[in-house]
Write a protein that binds this DNA or RNA. Sequence first.
DNA 1: GGCCAGGAACCTT
DNA 2: AAGGTTCATGGC
Length: 294
Amino acid sequence: MLINLPIDFNMNANLGYLGRNKNECMFEMDNGFITRVIDTGKTYRLVQLHANKHNQMIVQFIDSKPTKETEQAAVVRFVREWFDLDRDLFPFYEMANVDPLLKKPVQDFYGLRVVGVPDLFEALCWGVLGQQINLAFAYTLKRRFVEKFGTSIEHNSKKYWIFPTFKQIAKLSPEDLTDIKMTLKKSEYIIGIAKLMDNGELSKEKLLAMDNLKDAEKSLIKIRGIGPWTANYVLMRCLRHTSAFPIDDVGLHNSIKFLMGLDRKPSKEELLELSSKWSGWQAYATFYLWRVLY
DNA sequence: GGCCAGGAACCTT
DNA sequence: AAGGTTCATGGC
């Protein structure tokens, strides 16, 4: 399958983001090829993708199973969503090119998209896992969680993991998670979220139906374990609100500190002032600023 | 070895 | 509503 990429899409910029941590367990990267499992709705299929020289993404099933058209369509949909291919970034670049803080990052990483986490449960778990610990440890926790509770597809004696489903996790008790060294609180949060999704109170469809960002944010923050940071992180990476803004993010603070040569992190007032021109594109601004450090 | 990490809940004022 | 404390492990 071929997907025509936007003219301002740069595969290497996106690969750079995806390859930033060697401990990533949800996909494999090798020489520009990404291999991962994609949920087609009814089946899990092992897929490999890479970009060719004609600005196209080539998507191939590599598990040698018969493929239905519905699966092809689902995979293409996933890839489009994963890399935010249907977004017109012209207004963002127009704004960022004259923004003192964003100017250099958008030059250095031009063509980068907000790489998504299309699965809501995965996005929420990744958000909760990442709270108040360093990113390297967060990746370790995610790997342990996935390898203990997820399933996998084997290919060439390698395992390609499928993120644990909320249905599986909803059945667990917090103690089941403590031996992977995640805190009891986080275990409670993740199981609580899984239960809300399992009983249908929380779903991607419901959140997407709230066209107002603030409504979706409020409904997420009501959930135990989800605060302003996690809510906006998920709105940014899963629900794809370009104006979601995890303003409390330490990585964002450190990036700004670095770019401005400060000897301290920016204050809340400074953050609001610096981001005042980013309206509508806070998520993209944040993502590019993260790339400066990670 | 000590500081701090892609925060949030929970407890005091 | 604000402000301080606790969670808790591990990277650097």
